[in-house]
Amino acid sequence: MNNSTCSRRSLVKGMAGAAAFAIVGGLGLAGCGDPAAKADGSAPSDAAFKIGVLQLTEHPALDAANKGFVAAVEEAGIGAKINQQNAQNDQSACQTIAATLVNEGCDLILAIATPAAQAVAGATSDIPIVCTAITDFAASGLVKDNDAPGGNVTGTSDMNPVVDQIDLLHQLAPEAKKVGLLYCTAESNSKIQIDLAAAELKKLGMEGVEYTASGSNEVQQVVESMMGKVDAIYTPTDNTIASAMTVIASIANEHKVPTVCGEVAHVEAGGLASLSINYEELGRRAGEMAVRILTEGAEPAAMPIESMGAAECDLVYNGQTAEALGIDVTSLVEDGATDVSAAE
């Protein structure tokens, strides 16, 4: 793993979903969905597009993806009304909000996280849908093929550099024999990552042991049951696990069990380290795709799912956690890793 090539862009937090319209691009409230306004595949200077956003829940990674998307749309200056909606991790709310956005006649809908995307895709086959923070679009039933979506859905994938993350775990905990693979059974994308992690652990001579929770209320009990049975923990980019990461880290750190994580917010919450997708950049790329759809007539069906390689990810660690666990992170510092505990 060549960590020295990783991007050091910092993850910006803080855009919570709000059920209100935000005007971006500095333009007026012209009618949305006007065929004449986009008949030639371009947008007149006084046009205003209506973009609906459905975010699954408030979480630093998803908030950052949202922020990046809005920034890209704003910088394009196309004139857009953005209706921000947050389902607060409620599946039924996802369905209701998706139907509402479709009925409002949005020109395009952004869906953040897999359950939100599945709800929107189930509500319309006509309105262009751009998604972000989704591990595998095809495996989640959102597109026919990640390289050739074939429908009205496209976007950016947060497929982790799982192999590199497991290599990072091995680097930081070389004596570990059993690794707890912690995820929520309700999130299909998590299982994809867990299978990749288990395969890499086997190659490195370690054993991956799956520990699952069906919801956030089960996580604490599951983590407590892991103590004394595993030498380290791996957490994928799992929304349920992310919401409970402070509890997970508290228990694991107390028992001197290092946790290598799927993304930076887990590390900020007390995990040890990650080679993390930059979610603001991921959202920005989704925003650029949306702009091409709205102003250039690009078709989602022909827009391959975009992803970030390991060399574009952020190498991060929590210095306070490393100190508490007695783990030497000199090699990470030499590779240019960012200590996210320094920003706390």
Rank of each mutant, 00 (worst) to 15 (best):
T330I: 03
Y211C: 05
Q221S: 15
Q84L: 15
P304I: 01
R9L: 13
C94H: 12
P115N: 05
D34L: 08
E263Y: 09
I109Y: 10
G141V: 10
A138F: 05
L282P: 11
A269P: 13
A111C: 08
S331Q: 11
A138T: 04
I23N: 14
A242P: 09
A176K: 12
Q171R: 10
I248S: 00
K67T: 14
D158N: 14
I78H: 00
A337R: 07
A199N: 14
G31Y: 03
G105V: 03
T156N: 04
T235Y: 06
C94P: 12
L169M: 10
A337V: 13
L108N: 00
R8H: 13
S4I: 15
E263P: 11
M226Y: 03
L332V: 07
I327K: 01
A342P: 14
A61F: 11
K67I: 10
M227S: 09
G326E: 02
E263L: 10
P236E: 08
A139F: 03
L181F: 05
A290M: 06
G68F: 03
S214T: 15
N278K: 04
T212S: 11
M245N: 09
I97L: 03
F69I: 07
M15A: 09
M206F: 02
G25N: 02
M245S: 08
A322E: 01
T154F: 00
A111M: 08
I134L: 04
L110V: 00
L62Q: 08
Q88E: 15
Q320N: 13
G122A: 11
M303S: 11
D136A: 09
A43W: 00
G25Q: 00
S243Q: 08
V316Q: 03
A80T: 12
E104V: 03
T132W: 00
A343W: 13
T100Q: 12
I192F: 12
T240A: 13
K144I: 02
